[in-house]
């Protein structure tokens, strides 16, 4: 796994961003595990926690105090309230900070100054980056449309506030966001029409409006490659089963044929969407497989981490857009360490 080093070394901060339902939190965990498997220390940051991130590691919910999630992986949450409190402390207002929050003054000001919360949270991430709290810092960005606002806030605040402490906060956050040696955004999407269309729009917007730098995009929940089943009808399966002397009941043959037709159609559509995404965004893409287990658990995360590593290696080897590379997850390096512990 030597050739993923350049990916992990390029920037300390990776902000994982995507719409709800694309499996952003799972991807965050997979990235963390993939980095930890290279022996790096990893800090996971969850914003305004709600996600099931800690559950993926079988741990209790994250708080604003670091907790160990796995060897080499720590996790914590950043809430805007805690960030505000810390900011006030840093500005010599330890004494009034608590009162400000209790009386609601902080809340009213934060409401009246939209973006203040996001800016302070981003400021906290920047501090962590500057303090080098870990080799890799993976941030699970807020869900839904809020992720865009979250990433664009520093620039907007920079433009809105002409002078004052907020402006310098905003400037420093923008400096980090725009520097690919400090921070990159990992966009996550699904190989489906609407999510791909949204990702094409979002990728452009993130680059031009938020000024961030994009890492390879992740296409999550890609179905396994079933091209071998293309054009298999109930009749052809019956013939094959008879030839092999299996005596499969008609019911099984029919179900197999229906399921094959379904999977082949979905596979083709996913293929086309991945190709469209590659063409329109010019981003490197890494495909992660759909996990069929109802709930993704630690072994599922390991599997995804290995698929991610394999995908990054593929993008490293060929600068071309290998959209279909990860299609068959079972092709992921079988020798890859899957016990989860870094050595």
């Amino acid at each position: 796994m030597t050739d993923t080093n350049s990916f992990w070394e390029q920037s300390r901060v990776l902000i994982v961003a995507g719409k709800g339902g694309v499996g952003k939190t799972t991807v965050t965990a997979a990235l963390a595990v993939a980095a930890a498997k290279t022996g790096r220390s990893v800090q996971i940051v969850e914003i305004e926690g709600k996600s099931g991130l800690s559950r993926l590691f079988g741990s209790r919910p994250l708080s604003d105090i670091d907790q160990q999630l796995a060897p080499n992986i720590r996790g914590r949450q950043i809430t805007s309230l805690a960030a505000l409190l810390e900011y006030l402390n840093d500005h010599g207002m330890r004494r009034v900070a608590k009162r400000m929050i209790r009386s609601g003054v902080a809340d009213v000001v934060a409401t009246a100054v939209p973006g203040l919360r996001d800016l302070l949270v981003m400021g906290k991430i920047r501090q962590m980056q500057e303090a080098r709290v870990a080799d890799v810092i993976v941030v699970d960005a807020p869900a839904a449309g809020h992720a865009l606002a979250f990433l664009a806030t520093p620039r907007r605040m920079e433009q809105a506030a002409r002078v004052g402490p907020l402006r310098s906060q905003a400037e420093r956050a923008v400096a980090m966001l725009e520097d690919p040696s400090r921070c990159r955004v990992v966009p996550v999407t699904l190989p489906e029409h609407t999510p791909v269309s949204e990702m094409i729009q979002t990728a452009e917007w993130l680059t031009s409006q938020a000024g961030v730098v994009l890492a390879p995009a992740i296409v999550n929940m890609v179905n396994p490659d079933v091209s071998i089943l293309a054009d298999q009808s109930a009749a052809s399966l019956t013939t094959a089963a008879d030839r092999a002397g299996l005596g499969w009941p008609e019911e099984l043959i029919d179900a197999c044929a229906q399921s094959a037709a379904f999977a082949v159609a979905r596979g083709e559509q996913q293929h086309a969407e991945i190709a469209r995404l590659a063409k329109e965004t010019q981003l490197d893409l890494v495909s992660l497989p759909l996990i069929f287990e109802a709930e993704v658990d630690r072994s599922g995360i390991d599997h995804l981490a290995d698929a991610f590593t394999a995908g990054i290696q593929a993008t490293d080897r060929s600068a071309t857009h290998t959209a279909a590379t990860g299609l068959d997850a079972t092709n992921a390096d079988p020798t890859a360490n899957s016990n989860g512990g870094p050595r």
Partner: peptide, 26 residues
């Protein structure tokens, strides 16, 4: 197990079993 020798049949039953398991959990 019985379809081991025929890659297409094996893939077909693998595929069905996967989606069935998903459907049942859903």
């Amino acid at each position: 197990e019985t379809s081991e020798t025929d890659p297409t049949l094996r893939a077909a039953v693998d595929n069905l079993a996967r989606w069935e398991a998903l459907a049942a959990r859903e």
